[in-house]
Design a protein around this nucleic acid. Structure first.
Lengths: 301, 301
DNA sequence: CCCCTTGGCGAAAGTTTCCTTCACCTCGTT
DNA sequence: AACGAGGTGAAGGAAACTTTCGCCAAGGGG
């Protein structure tokens, strides 16, 4: 039994564009051409047969089928059906006209509109692509955790802190680590019943993978929040939560949409845990509000 | 010119149910059974092959094909595609049912949908409510700043760090302060041409207002990112950027949507500044990418 | 009353589409 | 520079789809 990949992806109906972007990096050149064509014109491709699409993209039928498989469908036939569905949705949805990239000379009003639209898109993609089974498993392990360590560096470090702050508020014991050395040092302490969470967009950030590996080796439950579910980080993750990978550009670094995506996942984790531990979470939340209340009056004068 | 019937029926995408009803009288008994099944459960039928649908309706493959023809499609294959599209449309039409609040017993899938929807809403609200004139002024002062200090505590502290990280990447000198004492200590150093940014959702967080006041008194340009533009913080702010205030609930703390809102504002600031300082920002961005590149290979093995 | 015609219907043959296997080729490695 | 791993497409095989054809039932004449 090989079973390398957590292949439990259901034939996503709407999340196709997102999936293409997420998986594109792990595709071969020919497959990328196919995926690109599919993402660019779902309606057009739905009208095509395997042979047709193969010709259009200058590849072979085998490659088309392989791509369909990678995207989570049993074969091309099913991809085609999903494509037809997507096309119908787009038809009725009528996308706004602000899809263009942000340019150096865009007026600020456009920048605001484009950014907001983009982040909305990212949220939709992430939600559509999130595997609720994996999420459920991750939530369960967090809710039962004796202690939680969260690893993230750079922009992901802030997300790690965000998760930690939230978990602390509902009474869990959580720590965020941005310092790789300290992270590893702490990871050694973890046992079964403890949970380690790694947050990395690239899925290959050594500074984050290393502590996760240590935690994994020590028997802790490990969770990876990453945009590359096939990246090195997956090796040591019991549960993988996939964030969406938006196209980036010069003025829109990847950090921007990956952060939005990661935060949504983190929020879902938080709410999920809060639900499961409602008895203790609710009073803990109220308590933290009250504790902060007096700090909002001081300078009123 | 024959032209008896308006036979030029295009493969109707959505009007399928209507077509079935219209044509039903002119159908034979077996065909009616097929048409009925198709109209009743498009999604289910789309998953079936000719043989499958024939069995389901207790008819033969030939009849299924004949029915498809009668409905205006070249064959069953195309009917099936249309069916898939129809199913997808129905599916998406059902989406706005998630406006309700998050409940303790919501399944995770609902939690994800609701959270995503809510944050999208927050983004839209923020974008709509953002004053581009104020934003422009804030951007201008940042772009010209000798040094930037950002104040934020709690959840807003992470937003402050996010802004700082971004500004650093395009070559500005920026610091985030979560420690009120250190913040004040640093604020004293500020002069004209320096910029201080305070991030507070409530608009009345003393720990953030105090350093902003000091900066203001020392002649620095001050910017407030707050959900309460009429709060105490406004007193010491040259430019006020308003974030949206979403309703909160027990399971959805204010910190969640305020964070989303604040981050959008911060992103807008960042992009705005990057545009204005493009000459220096672009190379600085590339440089920071390259500097990080090697940290993404280590554990590849 | 029997035979013939008409039209619905499905089994099976025929055709297209899709999937799998395998050998070749490219690219990166030692 | 030879070797190996993995990407790629051609060809054969399987499945799905379409068409043909003959059976059967119902109605109408002889």
């Amino acid at each position: 039994m090989k079973e390398t990949f957590a292949k439990g992806t259901p034939p996503a109906p709407a999340a196709l564009a997102a999936k293409v972007r997420t998986l594109a990096p792990s595709m071969t050149r020919s497959m990328q051409r196919v995926a690109e064509a599919v993402a660019a014109d779902p309606a057009g491709c739905a009208a095509l047969t395997v042979t047709g699409l193969a010709e259009l993209t200058g590849t072979s039928e085998a490659t088309v089928v392989r791509t369909a498989r990678l995207l989570g469908y049993p074969g091309y036939r099913d991809l085609r059906l999903a494509l037809a569905g997507l096309a119908a949705q787009q038809q009725s949805g009528r996308a706004p006209a602000v899809t263009a990239d942000i340019a150096v000379d865009d007026p600020l009003a456009d920048v605001v509109a484009k950014l907001a639209y983009d982040e909305q898109q990212t949220l939709a993609d992430t939600a559509a692509g999130l595997d609720t089974v994996q999420l459920g498993a991750a939530v369960a392990s967090l809710a039962a955790a004796r202690r939680v360590d969260v690893y993230g560096v750079g922009a992901s470090g802030l997300v790690a802190q965000d998760l930690t702050q939230k978990l602390l508020r509902i009474g869990l014991i959580a720590h965020a680590h941005s310092d790789p050395h300290l992270a590893v040092t702490n990871a050694v302490q973890l046992r079964a019943k403890d949970v380690a969470v790694a947050i990395t967009h690239s899925g290959s950030t050594g500074d984050v993978i290393e502590p996760l590996r240590v935690a994994f080796d020590h028997g802790a439950t490990t969770i990876a929040v990453t945009g590359r579910p096939d990246g090195p980080v997956a090796q040591y993750a019991d549960h993988i939560l996939t964030t969406s990978t938006a196209r980036e550009s010069e003025l829109r670094p990847a950090a921007m949409s990956s952060r939005t995506s990661q935060l949504l996942v983190v929020d879902c984790l938080f709410i999920g845990v809060a639900q499961r531990t409602y008895e203790t979470a609710a009073p803990a939340l109220s308590a933290s509000y009250e504790a902060l209340a007096h700090r909002h009056r001081s300078t009123s004068r």
